[in-house]
Nucleic acid binder design. Structure first.
Lengths: 355, 355
DNA sequence: GCCCCTCCTGCACACGTGTGCAAGTATACC
DNA sequence: GGTATACTTGCACACGTGTGCAGGAGGGGC
């Protein structure tokens, strides 16, 4: 049914080799036959068979992306950037979602291996040991986005956001707004993202000579439903904090909802800052101040890294195994106006200039 | 580098045909050699080459999905369902996003054709003439989700939500809540979805013997930023409506934001109902009453339809060319409490029982 | 002992494409 | 005209897999 180069060859009265060369812009064919064949190919509606080609070439011009679920808007934005960048480089993208189920994760990797993808990008939050073994066997370079593998093998590459820096930015912003009692609504325990963000939180406190108080740290889950419990844990005390930095936007949104129903005014009584800048953050009310992860850049960097690795470039360049990108403070309503004027520059800069 | 069946054949001292049969569970190999070869394959870390296989078999076990952008949470949910269902049927998914740019749309279809996908699913909102031509040339069945092609060819299949029914449900809900002056904040003009939803709006009005008033229809864009203009258009009049049915959730959310800044209380002064049930709808405040499109089901049906078509089943079964699914009313806060008690059953049913 | 049948295996080809090498033809130069 | 050269084309093989067909081996029945 579909027309192959052999069909074109027959129609043009040449061998299929000539057709292959003519379509491949080889200089080994005379200009007039090249024209003739190309016109013929167009007329016959020829479309090259990518599989047959990659079977010979050893490259499929395809990358795989493994996600937990694209329903997560954060992941969706990264996937969007990955697809777009891949397209610009002439690559297509096979999507595999695991729903955090181990069996599906393994099945996904197995499938991508069978499909002979040139590289794999993973945004799964946790890369377990068994999974790692499968990745090693993959034969293609793997780039992790915002996820750490348990045992970092020699073939582990990643793009991560600078969690510590972002958290420092967020907390510093609250401090410059005049807050001194700032709670941290944490994510799930034993999560390295949470660990680093908490470190940034403490660093910002330290730089402002504010003592870290463990009781102001409330353990959460990273999901929206932990907001209610967090609010009571924070507000049911004699010395209530005036601000809260949240592990991520979903936690912050949960906190906002709880505050509304509890009659706590945001930002007047409680200023709130999130992390991630998911699309919703701009639409909740009050609109959420947060740390924007440069998701398009992260996706782009991951693809370029993956393709460079697949191209067989040297992979042990210093600093190339883990690209760290920095987030950006997005000030909206939930962190309020400046509470009291201090002696400091009028404009609030992003970087804070520290370190 | 990667191990092929020839390598296994050499190691086992048999021909590659025997290996192929042994791994394919063919009854033509003796049980003991089958065992030996399978064990060997496992030990050597063999992974079948999907490309070579599909080159012979004529099927790639792959479907393509074309979207405008997976950043749209509505589309993301559909893609999730598509990927999941495809996986269950042993198929993998190639993702292509067009960003509504015609060139990319065409490039995407061309790419999927080269990859020889067995079927294509499209969630692009508009399928233009040029695009249609490319789809026809694709050689694979195409299933449209919630999108109509301009000229419906013989090979056009689709899964769509019953827009009229959904709009009727939403408007009827407002009517049963006691509202009689109900505005419709429309989507982009010349959009068939908008056309059908408006028809459902009018139908519900008619069934309640409420006269349709053209001035209560405000033209919008379907995006969040049209909410402000819509609000002033609706509220700056002598006889303000008490409720508004919006073309989609983004429009409704825009309306909610505008109402908040304008000091219009929702739902007391203005009840609002949306359409789509995007994930955000539950989190805005007041939480949005809306029509939930059964996205998982739609994705599932589309895949099953596409695979049936790819399998060469009869495709002209009546009613098979366009599957219509019905949405479901999700009552939240934005449509308020019942305004006045009428003589009607206590519990409000979804279907309304009309028609 | 011979024949037939069953069971298993290998040969050879196919899918659609790219490419090294040889062979062919036309052209130019002496 | 002979030869060297450049240019163009075809042959044959490769990639990794599936499968029709032939043929060999072995066993059972007469």
């Amino acid at each position: 049914m579909t027309v192959s180069i052999k069909d074109i060859a027959k129609a043009a009265g040449v061998s299929h080799s000539t057709v292959s060369r003519a379509l491949g812009e080889s200089p080994l064919v005379s200009p007039d036959t090249k024209d003739r064949i190309q016109r013929l190919a167009r007329e016959m509606g020829y479309s090259p068979d990518a599989q047959a080609r990659s079977l010979v070439m050893g490259r499929t011009q395809t990358i795989g992306i493994v996600v937990t679920t694209i329903t997560d808007p954060f992941i969706a934005e990264i996937v969007q950037a990955v697809e777009s960048t891949a397209h610009d480089h002439g690559y297509s993208v096979i999507l595999a979602s695991s729903n955090s189920r181990r069996r599906r994760e393994i099945a996904a990797v197995e499938m991508l291996r069978s499909k002979r993808v040139d590289a794999v990008i993973v945004t799964s939050s946790r890369v377990g040991a068994l999974y790692q073994a499968h990745l090693d066997q993959l034969g293609a370079p793997v780039v992790l986005i915002n996820s750490r593998s348990e045992q970092r093998g020699p073939y582990t590459f990643s793009v991560t956001v600078d969690n510590r820096h972002g958290a420092c930015l967020a907390t510093g912003h609250l401090i410059r707004r005049g807050h001194r009692r700032i709670a941290y609504i944490a994510g799930a325990a034993n999560h390295s993202d949470d660990f680093d963000r908490m470190a940034g939180y403490r660093q910002a406190l330290g730089e402002a000579n504010i003592a870290f108080e463990p009781s102001l740290v409330v353990r959460g889950t990273g999901r929206v439903d932990c907001g209610e419990e967090a609010l009571t844990a924070v507000m049911d005390r004699s010395d209530v904090p005036s601000a809260a930095f949240c592990y991520n936007d979903m936690t912050a949104i949960g906190l906002l909802r709880a505050a509304r129903t509890a009659g706590v005014s945001v930002p007047r009584e409680l200023a709130v800052v999130g992390f991630d800048d998911i699309p919703f953050a701009a639409y909740v009310s009050p609109a959420l101040t947060t740390i924007a992860q440069p998701k398009p850049e992260m996706g782009k960097r991951a693809v370029e890294m993956a393709l460079a690795l697949a191209g067989g470039e040297v992979s042990d360049l210093p600093g190339f195994t883990n690209v760290v990108v920095r987030g950006r403070l997005v000030v909206r309503e939930s962190s309020g106006e400046r509470m009291q004027v201090e002696h400091q520059p009028a404009s609030e800069s992003d970087g804070g200039g520290s370190s």
